[in-house]
C-alpha cells in the first residue's frame, strides 16, 4: 500500500481572507462606537448588544452545525464506501462544536457585563441566559468526551451521540425555560423587531454579517487543523510500518 501523503505545497487559497474579515470586523467596530446613536434609555451600554447578539447567533449556528454533522457522521460511519465522507463529517462536527463553545463563552461573558448596568445585577435566572449556559455545558462535555476517550474512534462515536441528543435537548430546554418565564429584551422577535431603522439596524446587520463570516472562517481553520492532525498521525503510522519492515 503506498502511503497517500498530501502534496508539499500546503494548499493556501484565500490567503487574503483573514484580512478581509478583519477589515469587516474593524468596520463594524467603528460603526458600533461611532456611527450607531446612543440609545435613549440604556445609554452607551446598549452598544454591547451588537456583538452580544451576533455572537449568540454565531454560537447557535455552531451548535446546530455540530449536531447535524454528528448526525451525518453516525449515519455515514456504518455505510461501506463512505469512510472518507464520515471523517469529513466528524471533523466538521468538532470544528463547529469548538467555534460554538467559543462564541457561547463570549455571550456568557458579555451578557453579565451588559446586565449589570442595565438590570443592576450580573446574573438573573433568565431563560436565554440559562439556555446558553446549559448549552455551553453540554458542548463543553462534547469536546471533553471527544478528547479524552480511551481510543479515538470511541471518542468520536460517543461525542457524536452527545451532539445528536443535544440538538433536540437544546430545543426542549428553550421551550421549558421560556415557559418558566423571564424578561430578556425581545429585540429580535421576528416581527420587525424593536430596533430602530437607520444606523442602528445597519450597525447590527454589519456586526452580524462580519462576526458570522469570521466564525465560518474559524470553523474552516479548525477543520484544516484537525485534518492536519490526522495526517500527521497517519504519517507516523506509515513511517513506523516502514521502519519495522526488514
Amino acid at each position: 500500500m503506498s502511503p497517500s501523503l498530501p502534496t508539499t505545497a500546503a494548499r493556501r487559497p484565500l490567503v487574503w481572507m483573514p484580512y478581509l474579515l478583519g477589515a469587516g470586523l474593524v468596520a463594524s467596530l467603528v460603526f458600533v462606537f461611532f456611527v450607531a446613536p446612543t440609545e435613549l434609555k440604556m445609554g452607551e451600554v446598549q452598544r454591547i448588544f451588537y456583538f452580544h447578539v451576533a455572537s449568540a447567533t454565531a454560537a447557535l449556528v455552531g451548535f446546530i452545525g455540530c449536531a447535524l454533522a454528528s448526525l451525518a457522521y453516525l449515519v455515514l460511519r456504518m455505510m461501506r464506501g463512505y469512510e472518507v465522507l464520515a471523517r469529513v463529517a466528524d471533523r466538521l462536527a468538532v470544528s463547529f462544536g469548538e467555534v460554538g463553545v467559543l462564541f457561547g463563552l463570549i455571550v456568557l461573558i458579555t451578557g453579565p457585563l451588559w446586565a449589570k448596568p442595565a438590570w443592576n445585577t450580573f446574573w438573573t435566572w433568565e431563560p436565554r441566559l440559562v439556555l446558553m449556559l446549559l448549552t455551553v455545558f453540554l458542548f463543553v462535555g462534547y469536546l471533553v468526551l471527544r478528547g479524552y476517550a480511551k481510543t479515538d474512534d470511541l471518542g468520536k462515536r460517543l461525542a457524536a451521540g452527545i451532539a445528536v441528543i443535544g440538538g433536540p435537548a437544546v430545543y426542549l430546554i428553550h421551550v421549558a425555560v421560556e415557559m418558566w418565564g423571564g424578561n430578556h429584551p425581545q429585540v429580535m422577535t421576528g416581527q420587525g423587531g424593536g430596533l430602530e431603522p437607520g444606523p442602528m439596524r445597519t450597525t447590527f446587520a454589519l456586526s452580524l454579517a462580519s462576526l458570522c463570516l469570521f466564525a465560518g472562517y474559524l470553523v474552516w481553520q479548525r477543520y484544516q487543523h484537525h485534518r492536519l492532525v490526522e495526517q500527521v498521525d497517519d504519517a507516523y503510522l506509515t513511517l513506523s510500518d516502514l521502519e519495522e519492515q526488514p
Partner: peptide
C-alpha cells in the same frame, strides 16, 4: 462577578426588566 454583585444586590433588589424592549436612539 457574582461575588462582586453581592453587595450591590444587598442594597436594592434588581429592578424588573421590561418584557419587551425597543431600542431607540
Amino acid at each position: 462577578l457574582l461575588g462582586a454583585a453581592g453587595p450591590a444586590l444587598a442594597d436594592e433588589a434588581p429592578p424588573e426588566p421590561p418584557a419587551t424592549t425597543e431600542f431607540r436612539s
